[in-house]
Write a protein that binds this DNA or RNA. Structure first.
Lengths: 127, 127
DNA sequence: GAACTCCCTGGAGTGCGCTCCAGGTCAAGG
DNA sequence: CCTTGACCTGGAGCGCACTCCAGGGAGTTC
């Protein structure tokens, strides 16, 4: 009486990833365990898988390389006892992201300045 | 009596790009004009080149693809009269960057939450 | 004038993260 | 039955942005 789970196409729609990417992530060791299969061998994504994919997406979308996501997945897969390592990995990532955000914001500020200049130029030439 | 300009190695150091990247940008049409040369054919980067490279770096570092930087360079190279187009390009980029920043910040918030959970777990296990 | 260093060019190679493809299986519909 | 459609696998291919390399000057140092 278990609900079998989402097809890969449905999981793709839910997560915003492509079907190919979902299979690629699994092949590449980013999942915590092989995705469950139906009797005919089709993947069936359950809530656990979807939640984990969401976490992977957060890490990827903040710029974490696949290889680091894989390391994080390995830690989680290993089970309890390595929380300090997981924490260290996430905190290191956090620092990288914050630095990157600051850099982008700084550069964007300079670009905004240039936008201001062009805005003046364009509006005065239209006058 | 013209100061000849910086060697490519010095320009690389100044801009934070690699020597190879500087040559690549020039080959790929990202510069406004061919970089001036010394009598022996070595590149000599002057203030104009360095300023432009700084702008390119800002665009690149905020995620603008090479191809769009090239389009922007082409507009600037074409001279006055297309300020509206330059402005449109920069504004479009700005929107993309802002959206990306918001997304990253959102995902980072979720990661921070997870960090909080692990911090609690680790500190209580140490207690 | 031999060695050294820095630079040149054209072109090949690399790492990343997907993305696509051929050839095959399986359950359901007509 | 036979087609259809979604999915399977292993592996090749791709776009991007560099990065590296071979082979060849040119100017300086001893």
């Amino acid at each position: 009486m278990t609900t079998s789970g989402l097809s890969i196409a449905d999981a793709a729609e839910r997560t915003g990833l492509s079907v190919d990417t979902l299979r690629y992530y699994e092949r590449d060791g980013l999942m915590l365990a092989p995705v469950p299969r139906t009797s005919s061998g089709h993947r069936a994504y359950g809530p656990d898988e979807l939640r984990w994919i969401t976490m992977v997406t957060r890490l990827r979308s903040t710029g974490m390389p696949i290889r680091d996501v894989r390391r994080y997945a390995a830690l989680v897969r290993a089970g309890e006892g390595n929380e300090a390592e997981r924490l260290a990995l996430l905190q290191a990532h956090r620092q990288v992201v914050l630095a990157r955000l600051a850099e982008v914001q700084d550069h964007l500020g300079a670009i905004d300045h240039k936008i201001g200049i062009y805005t003046d130029a364009v509006s005065s030439s239209a006058a």
